[in-house]
Simulated assay, not measured.
Amino acid sequence: MTFAASVFAALSIATSATASSEPPPPPALQALVVSSDYQANIARLFSQLPAPVLQRCPSLISKGSTVTMIEPVSFAPDGYPTSGLWEQSFPVSGCGNDTTINFFFRAQSDEKITSIVGVPGETHADVILQSDAVGMMATAVKAAAPNCEQITVQDSKYLGPVGKSHKAWQESWLLAVCARPTHITLTFTPDDTGTKILVSPVKQMP
């Protein structure tokens, strides 16, 4: 089993799944997430997070994680996954930026696992929507701050449903735009063709 990382952008990490309203992952997946190779990959992913997302300090803590299976996970006889998608979320706190670190993992037929660093926080967007939203957000911010090359999504808050159908929802994303905190609002509206994303205007920055 090998890991490859894809990023949209001294910590003791607990990788055992905590209780949640989601059904528990299958036993084979539970065994995988506590394996030494998997935990080493988690530690590597955490080490690569930029400072605006994961602020380090002596009081930084992460009390366990939640594993959510998004697509059914199949396993080879040797116990390694060969298909499927799951998310693992780690609440972190103690350093002034309490949030949830979200990682996605996609298993492949050759027993390789692709690791995807998702948007931190409470976003309800799936992994594809997150990628689309990050691209649209970056375009809007660069138009307002053309001299800034460092744009990081620091946190996200779910604001709730909007509209009569309650299918659409809004989120507030906290960005670090060249170290300047900036909030934007995103509206996600599902329809027959997919989900439309509307990014709120960003004020011009020097």
Rank of each mutant, 00 (worst) to 15 (best):
K167F: 07
L175P: 02
V127W: 07
I151C: 08
Q30C: 02
W86H: 09
D126T: 04
Y158R: 12
M1D: 08
T123Y: 00
I151F: 03
G64C: 08
E111Y: 06
T152Q: 11
E87C: 08
L198T: 08
A107H: 02
D110Q: 08
I42K: 10
V119G: 00
I70M: 10
V134N: 06
P181F: 05
T99H: 15
T152A: 11
K63V: 06
Q30L: 08
S83A: 15
V33F: 00
A179L: 02
T99S: 15
Y80S: 12
L29K: 12
A51M: 13
Q48M: 10
N147T: 01
S62G: 14
I197N: 02
Q130W: 05
T139C: 05
D155P: 09
R44M: 07
A43C: 03
N41F: 13
P81L: 11
S12F: 04
W173T: 01
Q88P: 08
T182L: 15
M137W: 01
E22G: 08
Y80W: 11
G84S: 10
L85W: 04
K203T: 12
S62L: 08
P201R: 08
T187V: 13
M137R: 04
S35L: 04
S165Q: 12
S74F: 09
P26K: 14
T189A: 05
P58N: 09
S131G: 10
H183E: 15
K196I: 00
T182Y: 04
A125Q: 08
A10F: 06
V134E: 00
T82F: 10
M69K: 12
A76L: 03
K157S: 04
Y158I: 05
D110C: 12
L54S: 05
T68D: 11
P77H: 10
G64I: 01
Y158V: 03
L186Q: 06
Y158T: 00
E87S: 14
Q108S: 13
P50D: 11
S6T: 05
H166K: 14
V134Y: 06
I61N: 14
G163D: 13
V7S: 12
F8V: 06
H166P: 03
T139I: 11
Y38M: 11
T82G: 10
V153C: 09
I184H: 03
Y38E: 03
L129A: 09
A28N: 13
S59T: 15
D191I: 07
H124E: 02
N41M: 15
Q108P: 00
F105K: 00
P52M: 14
T189C: 05
E171W: 05
L32I: 06
S156Y: 03
P146R: 06
L198P: 01
T152C: 07
A143K: 12
D37S: 09
S89M: 06
T195G: 01
S20F: 03
A76P: 03
S93V: 04
M205H: 13
A76Y: 03
V177Y: 01
G118W: 02
G121N: 03
I42E: 01
P120N: 04
D78P: 06
F188K: 03
D191K: 06
P161N: 14
P72H: 07
S172Q: 15
V33I: 10
S35T: 07
V199F: 01
G118P: 05
I101G: 11
A125T: 01
Q204L: 11
S65W: 02
N97T: 04
